[in-house]
Structure formats: structure tokens, C-alpha cells
């Protein structure tokens, strides 16, 4: 029982980080109808910048620079590559971002090589005790940050002019532009936000209990794809729930690997995708996705 609770809590915290990255994914999809596979390498970029700079600048300034770099990179992808072919079909745009991802991830992992770069977070390997369960402090921080960001995100989406513009543009771009909403700005803002969220995700995914920034970190964002699909591509709430589910599932399958060994070892990596497929069999547009989306 104790093990189960420990795993569950660990999974929820991990899932909170996935949620952030998935949220960025959904934001971009809603605003520009692009399935942004470059999210992974942007995540790596953010983490890389923080890891490289924290010694010279200090941790918090490094985080600020990392977020900015990831946001800028993300906006650049939109402005330079996506904007001119905005009306291209879903597949073309997705493959374009996949190409960007490969380029950026290759370059970054070449720079990182086999190194393990410390992210330099002040919470180091501290451990917090919550109701008798010991959890890495970085994960607790991640959970709180995720909760604040998700709540802030929701409020911004719901109440600010920016949020209204974003949702209008997502629903009917042409009409939104007739209402004076500048679609290119909305798109750029969405991409910037996705980049920054990816960097935050990267920061926590490379903090303890992970070792630090390695070339393979970009691949971690892959775990967010089942989260996004599971939640429904265009639902921010779905992304958050999807992220939590994927976090819990991957930690539980790893923790019960011995008991589940009849299914084969190394299940942790496969389980999120298996869960995703199961959900899609029952609800083809994800848990919270809009139905039309399946017809796209």
C-alpha cells in the first residue's frame, strides 16, 4: 500500500511536469493548427541554456534566459517556417516541425555529447516529507509551479483580452480577423508560450531525481504526445489530465515491473502509448477533444 501511494504521488508530480509541456502543445495546436513536434527539442534548448548559464549568471537569471531562449526559438519556428504556409495541411506542417525537431535536437545533443550537465537548481537533491511519503523537493516545486501555471493559464484564457483573442482565433480565424484580431500576433504569442512552458518542463525534467541535461532529454517530450492525444488535441484541460495520467501510468508500470513481468520487461516506456491506444479505441477524439477533430 505504501509503495502504491509513493508511486502514485511520484507519478502525479511527474505528470504535472508532462502537463506543462502538453499544455504548450495544445496551445500551439489551438492557435495555429500545427502539431508541433519541435516541442521536444525546444524543451532541450531551454534546459541546455539554463544548465550552461547557471554558473555564470546564477540560477534564477539563467532560468529567465532559458525561458526567453526557448520562447524565442519557438516563435522563430512559427514566423520563419510556419507563417508563410499557414494554410498548408496538418500533415505538411507536422512534418515540417518534425524536421525542425531533428535538426535542433541533433545540434544540441552534439553539443552536449555524453555529458551530464547539472541544471544547478537550488533545491538540489533535497527531499520533502509529505504525509510520510518522501518526495524529491524539486518534484514538489514542480507540482506547485505546474498548479500555479495551469491556474494562471486558465484564468488568462478565460478572463484576459489576450485569452479571448486566442480562443476566438482558435475557433474561427477568419471571423476573428474580421473582428480586428491580429492572427499572426496571436499565433506568435501561442508559440512563445509553448516554448516557455517547454523550458519550464525541461527545467524540472532535468532536475533531481533526473541527473541533469543530457542529449536524450528532448526525447522525454515524446511522453507528452500520448498525454496530448489522450486528452484530446485541442483541450487544455485534457492536456493537463492527460499529462497526469501518463505520469502515473509510467511510474506505476515501472514500479510494478516485477509483478507485470509477464507482459515483458521495460513496460514503463510502452505503457503510456498502450493507455493512449485504449482511450482512443473508446473515445476516438480523446477524453476531452472536440469531435470534429477526428474528421480533420
Amino acid at each position: 500500500m505504501n509503495q502504491f501511494v509513493t508511486l502514485l504521488v511520484g507519478g502525479l508530480f511527474l505528470g504535472a511536469i508532462y502537463s506543462l509541456v502538453a499544455l504548450g502543445f495544445v496551445t500551439v495546436f489551438k492557435a495555429t493548427h500545427v502539431i508541433n513536434f519541435a516541442q521536444g527539442s525546444v524543451l532541450l534548448l531551454g534546459a541546455y541554456v539554463i544548465a550552461r548559464l547557471h554558473e555564470s549568471l546564477g540560477f534564477w537569471p539563467a532560468v529567465a534566459v532559458g525561458l526567453l531562449a526557448a520562447a524565442a526559438c519557438s516563435v522563430l519556428i512559427d514566423v520563419v517556417l510556419i507563417r508563410r504556409i499557414r494554410r498548408a495541411d496538418l500533415g505538411t506542417l507536422a512534418i515540417l516541425t518534425l524536421g525542425v525537431d531533428i535538426l535542433l535536437a541533433t545540434e544540441l545533443s552534439r553539443r552536449i555529447g555524453t555529458d551530464v550537465l547539472n541544471i544547478g537548481a537550488p533545491w538540489g537533491n533535497h527531499v520533502t516529507e509529505l504525509f510520510g511519503i518522501r518526495v524529491a523537493t524539486s518534484r514538489v516545486v514542480a507540482g506547485c509551479v505546474a498548479a500555479v501555471l495551469v491556474a494562471g493559464f486558465w484564468a488568462a484564457f478565460k478572463f484576459t483580452d489576450w485569452g479571448i483573442a486566442m480562443r476566438s482565433a482558435a475557433e474561427d480565424g477568419e471571423t476573428a480577423s474580421l473582428m480586428g484580431i491580429r492572427l499572426n500576433r496571436v499565433a506568435a504569442a501561442a508559440w512563445a508560450l509553448a516554448g516557455a512552458l517547454a523550458a519550464v518542463g525541461g527545467l524540472f525534467l532535468t532536475s533531481f531525481p533526473a541527473a541533469g541535461v543530457t542529449g536524450g532529454v528532448g526525447v522525454l517530450a515524446l511522453a507528452c504526445i500520448p498525454a496530448v492525444v489522450l486528452g484530446g488535441f485541442d483541450s487544455p484541460g485534457g492536456a493537463v489530465i492527460g499529462g497526469l495520467i501518463i505520469g502515473v501510468v509510467s511510474v506505476l508500470t515501472a514500479g510494478y515491473q516485477e509483478e507485470l513481468s509477464f507482459l515483458g520487461r521495460g513496460l514503463g516506456g510502452v505503457a503510456p502509448f498502450a493507455v493512449m491506444l485504449l482511450v482512443l479505441l473508446i473515445r476516438p477524439s480523446g477524453l476531452f477533444g472536440t469531435r470534429e477533430l477526428t474528421r480533420v
Binding site: 483580452d161 479571448i164 483573442a165 480562443r167 476566438s168 475557433e171 474561427d172 471571423t175 476573428a176 473582428m179 484580431i181
Partner: peptide, 12 residues
């Protein structure tokens, strides 16, 4: 904007 409320439509 059918997923937005009436109020939000006006704000848009």
C-alpha cells in the same frame, strides 16, 4: 464564436 459565451463574443 460558438464555444465562447455571449459576453466573451462581445469582448472579442
Amino acid at each position: 464564436f460558438s464555444n465562447l459565451t455571449v459576453e466573451e463574443n462581445l469582448r472579442a
